[in-house]
């Protein structure tokens, strides 16, 4: 398992290729990449993600540990960025590997659901002179109840 919290961009293709490489026991690899959207009105110029150093790593570790106990996984990777980003930039990625695809698919969704509302990141969007903190959505909280 690898958990990375960093400001700089990461190489998604290289990470995806290296993930679970050589593990002939694992028949399924799922990779997910989160990208900065231009905002619902399309006028967002940049986004700044704040985080809680120390707790962020701890929270991501806890979420990944829980995924490992719930599903039969060979490996887990979570990379999440903080700092300034623009529309189209990568924010984060999750990769899961398992013997059969169901475990990897479900675990990847679980990781995404939990790191949306249980990992200490906060997004602030900037457009022109204005800026606003992104509000948490009720459906993100509701998404946790299915697990």
């Amino acid at each position: 398992m690898r958990i990375v919290v960093q400001e700089q961009p990461f190489d998604f293709a290289a990470e995806a290729t290296a993930f679970a490489k050589g593990r002939t026991d694992l028949g399924a690899v799922i990779t997910f990449q989160g990208i900065v959207r231009a905002g619902d009105t399309g006028d967002m110029e940049r986004m700044v993600i704040e985080h809680y150093p120390g707790m962020t790593e701890k929270a991501l570790q806890k979420i990944a540990d829980e995924a490992l106990t719930r599903w039969n996984l060979g490996d887990v990777l979570v990379i999440h960025r903080y700092g300034e980003m623009r529309a189209g930039d990568q924010i984060m990625m999750v990769a899961t590997a398992s013997r059969h695809r169901k475990d990897a698919f479900e675990a990847a969704e679980y990781l995404m659901d939990y790191l949306k509302s249980r990992a200490p990141f906060w997004k602030k969007e900037y457009a022109g002179e204005g800026s606003a903190w992104v509000a948490a959505k009720d459906e993100d909280e509701d998404a946790l109840s299915r697990w």
Binding site: Y52, P120, K123
Partner: peptide, 10 residues
């Protein structure tokens, strides 16, 4: 002790 709004990661 840390205080913050609901988190918006992912």
């Amino acid at each position: 002790v840390a205080f913050f709004p609901p988190m918006t990661g992912g």
